[in-house]
Amino acid sequence: MNVHEAISQHSRQQHEHLQEFEQLDHLREELIQEAVELCLKGEAFSTEAINQVTARIIEHAKNGISPLRQFVNEDMVRDYVEQLKREKQ
């Protein structure tokens, strides 16, 4: 494989890696939004699904250049909801 082919292959792999990260990150954001909406309504919610996707993102990041995401707990969601409520006042 010549240098040009190697660089092209490397670029393609990085692009594919980042595309997969974007899909996982989008799913994580959707799950966070669902938890926030439930919390705003005063309904029960869980961060388990959020953190399952977060774990997948962290594992995925070990194989490329994508950023990490932190785990989310229920208090973080409640604090964010309280912040949203204060901003609306």
Results as ranks from 00 to 15, higher is better:
Lys41Leu: 14
Gln33Ala: 09
Leu24Met: 05
Asp25Leu: 05
Lys41Val: 02
Arg56Ala: 09
Ala35Glu: 08
Glu22Gly: 00
Gln33Lys: 07
Glu34Tyr: 04
Ala44Gln: 08
Gln23Met: 03
His4Asp: 14
His15Tyr: 14
Arg12Phe: 15
Asn51Ala: 04
His15Lys: 15
Thr47Met: 04
Arg28Met: 04
Gly64Met: 06
Ile58Arg: 11
Ala35Val: 10
Glu34Val: 06
Glu37Tyr: 04
Leu18Thr: 07
Leu31Tyr: 09
Leu68Phe: 04
Leu24Glu: 08
Leu38Gln: 11
Gln13Tyr: 12
Glu29Tyr: 10
Asp25Thr: 00
Ile50Cys: 03
Arg56Leu: 02
Phe45Gln: 09
Asn51Leu: 09
Thr54Gln: 03
Gly42Asp: 05
His17Phe: 10
Glu20Lys: 09
Phe21Met: 07
Ile7Asp: 00
Glu48His: 11
Ser8Gln: 14
Glu30Trp: 04
Leu24Arg: 05
Cys39Asp: 06
Ala6Phe: 11
Glu48Pro: 03
Arg56Ser: 01
Glu29Gly: 04
Val53Cys: 05
Leu24Ser: 06
Glu29Thr: 08
Glu5Met: 13
Asn51Ser: 11
Val53Ile: 12
Ala44Met: 07
Glu43Pro: 03
Glu59Asp: 11
Asp25Gly: 03
Ala61Leu: 01
Leu40Lys: 15
Glu37Ile: 06
Ala61Tyr: 00
Gln13Cys: 10
Ala6Ile: 11
Gln13Leu: 15
His10Glu: 14
Ala44Pro: 05
Ser8Asp: 14
Leu31Pro: 10
Ala49Cys: 01
Ala44Trp: 01
Val53Lys: 02
His26Ala: 02
Ala44Leu: 01
Leu24His: 01
Ala6Gly: 10
Leu24Val: 00
Gly42Val: 01
Ile65Tyr: 08
His15Gly: 07
Lys41Ser: 09
Leu38Gly: 04
Thr47Cys: 15
Thr54Met: 05
Ala55Asn: 08
Ile32Tyr: 09
Lys41Cys: 05
Gln14Leu: 13
Glu16Cys: 13
His26Met: 01
His10Ser: 14
Leu18Ala: 02
Leu27Cys: 04
His4Gln: 15
Thr54Asp: 00
Ala6Asn: 12
Asp25Trp: 02
Cys39Lys: 06
Ala49Glu: 10
Leu27Trp: 01
His15Cys: 12
Glu22Trp: 02
Ser8Lys: 13
Glu34Asp: 13
Asn51Trp: 07
Gln13Glu: 15
Ile65Asp: 12
Ala44Gly: 02
Leu40Arg: 15
Ala44Ile: 04
Ser66Asp: 12
Asp25Ser: 10
Leu18Gln: 05
Ile32Cys: 07
Gln52Ser: 05
His26Leu: 02
Leu40Val: 07
Asp25Gln: 10
Glu5Ser: 14
Lys62His: 07
Glu22Asp: 10
Gln9Glu: 15
His4Ile: 14
His4Leu: 13
Gln9Leu: 15
Gln13Trp: 12
His26Tyr: 02
Gly42His: 06
His4Glu: 14
Val36Glu: 06
Ile58Val: 13
His26Asp: 02
Ile57Trp: 08
Ala61Ser: 14
Ser66Pro: 11
His60Met: 05
Ala6Thr: 11
Ile57Ser: 01
Ile32Asn: 06
Ala55Arg: 10
Phe21Pro: 08
Glu20His: 09
His10Asn: 12
Ser8Glu: 15
Ala55Ile: 01
Ile7Gly: 00
His4Lys: 13
Asn63Pro: 04
Arg12Ile: 14
Leu31Glu: 11
Val53Arg: 00
